[in-house]
């Protein structure tokens, strides 16, 4: 073997390995990015102070501010505290327990990256693991359906199909921390986040007592990807 073909082989194998790892749900550590400043703050203006509140509601507190008391955090964040003339909204840092990261935020960008890279579909299961029958899959689908509530989704979220990955316990219960958005189409990031939240509620609520899945096929349903397509749920 000459050096050149060996190098090529190495590159090919590395690429293969990486895509296989991605297919299994491996994700490189993500950047704790700064929240997007969507509304410019105009101090000494009631309207502005209100929008500041909106900003905080929408955006996660950056990690570098998490330890500061709220007023200082906001001051650092915005430059100056708003004029408390009429309404003074301000962010409240979470009490007691540490702030839980919103699983939705950040995952969106990841999902976009995945989509751009073209997700490799998982290999065919080994013959020793029994597959789920059509009836068993239907039963799972029917079990999630009554908890998927499109009632609070806005029109854009109702245009957004989301793919949600979930890891399952052996007793058929979804692991709450495992739910993540692995792909979406048809709407903006924000719409996908809302659609994901509704899908997440559906999986967790209806699975609170465990889904009826065959234990002998556990390896087959240990990881599930559910696609929520709201096409038929749109207004007229």
């Amino acid at each position: 073997m000459t050096r050149a073909p060996r190098m090529i082989l190495c590159i090919v194998i590395t690429g293969w390995a990486c895509s296989a790892a991605f297919a299994q749900g491996y994700r490189p550590p993500r950047n704790a990015g700064l929240p997007e400043l969507r509304h410019a703050a105009r101090p000494s203006n009631d309207l502005a102070t209100y929008w500041v509140g909106f900003l905080f509601l929408n955006a996660p507190v950056p990690q570098y501010l998490a330890g500061f008391p709220p007023v200082i955090a906001m001051w650092l964040f915005l430059g100056a505290p708003p004029d408390p003339k009429v309404f003074t909204p301000m962010a409240i840092t979470p009490g007691a327990g540490a702030r839980e990261p919103d699983p939705a935020s950040g995952e969106i960008g990841q999902a976009v990256d995945d989509a751009l890279q073209g997700r490799t579909p998982g290999p065919v299961p080994a013959p020793e693991t029994p597959s789920l029958t059509r009836a068993q899959q239907d039963r799972l689908r029917l079990a999630v359906l009554p908890c998927w509530n499109a009632g609070v989704l806005d029109s854009e979220a109702l245009m957004t199909t989301v793919v949600v990955a979930v890891s399952m316990h052996r007793d058929g219960r979804p692991e709450p921390g495992s739910l993540r958005l692995v792909g979406f189409s048809g709407g903006s990031d924000a719409a996908a986040r809302r659609a994901f939240e509704a899908a997440r509620r559906a999986i967790l609520r209806c699975g609170a007592n465990g889904y009826d899945l065959p234990i002998e096929a556990y390896e087959r349903w240990r990881e599930i990807e559910m696609t929520f397509n709201p096409e038929s749920m749109r207004i007229e």
């Binding site: 194998i13 293969w16 390995a17 296989a20 790892a21 297919a23 299994q24 749900g25 998982g122 290999p123 065919v124 299961p125 080994a126 693991t129 789920l132 899959q137 799972l140 689908r141 999630v144 359906l145 009554p146 908890c147 998927w148 509530n149 499109a150 009632g151 609070v152 990955a165 559906a202 390896e219 087959r220 349903w221 240990r222 990881e223 599930i224 990807e225 559910m226 696609t227 929520f228 397509n229 709201p230 096409e231 038929s232 749920m233």
Partner: peptide, 27 residues
């Protein structure tokens, strides 16, 4: 590494289901 990864993937390839119906009700 590759063999190990694909082996694991064979056992854990996610089950894919699609949900196209839900309910519309107050939250």
């Amino acid at each position: 590494t590759l063999v190990g990864l694909t082996g694991a993937a064979r056992a854990q390839g996610p089950l894919r289901i699609e949900i196209t119906e839900g309910v519309i009700e107050p939250l």
